[in-house]
């Protein structure tokens, strides 16, 4: 099947800065795809390369099999929901949504009808007469979404779509976006620095760092089996274990990762296990997170609330199942 978006050795350099560096990537049609990474990692530049605001300095980009280098944004059947929404302040909501159809020469009645339908889709029916300045942040975002979707794009790009919303609104919007994507079957590509958002919404996630993709995979893959120290560290809060440590328990000299909730803590310091000292405790509600010092190695473990919590400075024994210790591809 032709990929919705394909990068082949695609680079975007700004002088000496390698914003995107020889990236290979295929996004499948109808997929909800997340680009995750810290700021400056190249994820937003990748989005802008798909939209056409940036041009690759090397390599190629195809959208549904058609080469896109040198094609201006206005000739790509791809639409973007901008981080600051970028609603036109001089137009009312209906004309904002109808803008794409207007510049394509669709008649006034027809485009207004389509815009009304799109507003219904994002649950803002009847808001067409308002100016963007009269809407709340969440409503503006829905308008931005409707304005993009009304053009029936082959790919919808979302740049930190939930970044400006408060926590509660963000959670309900996550759910809604996911349902919308399923119902429409349009390929969604969204950029975020929030790993929780990426893991909970996306079908697949690409983790970016320093202009390169560190790992691409389903959320469980990324979470359970990080390929490198960076991914283990950035996605969630895995304990990164050095090769010496891993060799002792798994027999292979590789970097490893272990999730905090997979570490069990025993007060009894006799018997097998990793001896450690409790450095500090952080109460998180459903669980308590412990910072531990195992002979110079800093580890984190979570203990469910209700279980006995060792006090600061206590000496404890740590145990875990060997098969839960994940060996990373990254070489020692």
């Amino acid at each position: 099947m032709t990929p919705a978006v394909a990068f082949q050795k695609t680079s975007r350099h700004f002088g000496a800065v390698r914003a995107v560096d020889a990236v290979d990537l295929e996004i499948k049609p109808g997929e909800f795809f997340a680009m995750l990474g810290p700021s400056g990692s190249g994820k937003t530049t990748c989005l802008r390369l798909i939209a056409g605001f940036e041009q690759p300095t090397a390599g190629s980009i195809s959208i549904f099999g058609e080469r896109a280098e040198g094609v201006p944004p206005y000739r790509r059947n791809v639409n973007t929901v901008f981080q600051d929404y970028a609603l036109f302040p001089h137009l009312n909501v209906l004309d904002n949504v109808a803008y794409g159809l207007m510049v394509k020469g669709v008649s006034r009645d027809e485009r207004h009808r389509a815009a009304e339908d799109a507003l219904k889709l994002v649950q803002l029916p009847g808001y067409g007469g308002r100016k963007p300045g009269q809407l709340s942040g969440g409503q503006r975002q829905r308008v931005a979404l409707a304005r993009a979707l009304v053009n029936k794009p082959k790919v919808l790009l979302l740049d930190e779509p939930l970044g400006a919303l408060d926590l509660k609104l963000r959670e309900s919007m996550q759910e809604e976006l996911k349902q919308l994507q399923k119902a429409l079957g349009i390929t969604f590509v969204f950029v975020t620095h929030d790993q929780g958002e990426a893991l909970s919404m996306a079908d697949r996630v690409a983790v970016f760092n320093d202009g390169r993709i560190m790992q691409v995979g389903a959320p469980e893959d990324i979470y359970q089996r990080p390929a490198s120290r960076f991914v283990a560290d950035f996605v969630g809060s895995s304990n990164v274990l050095p090769p010496d440590f891993v060799q002792r328990y798994a027999g292979e000299r590789r970097w490893g990762s272990l999730r905090p909730e997979q570490i069990r803590i025993r007060r009894d310091t006799s018997g097998d296990g990793v001896a450690a000292r409790v450095v500090s405790r952080h109460y998180l509600g459903a669980a308590t997170k412990l910072s531990l010092d195992a002979d110079g190695l800093r580890l984190h473990a979570t203990v469910p609330s209700g279980a006995a919590i060792p006090e600061d400075g206590a000496h404890v024994m740590l145990t875990f199942n060997r098969d839960q210790l994940h060996l990373m591809e990254e070489q020692a």
Binding site: I63, R67, R75, N77, A118, K120, K152, K154, L184, G185
Partner: peptide, 20 residues
Amino acid sequence: MSVQAVSGASDVAAAILPRR
């Protein structure tokens, strides 16, 4: 949600549009 209003045609349209 009136999904039909928006979906559908997106399979037919080209990814790269011709020049105006």
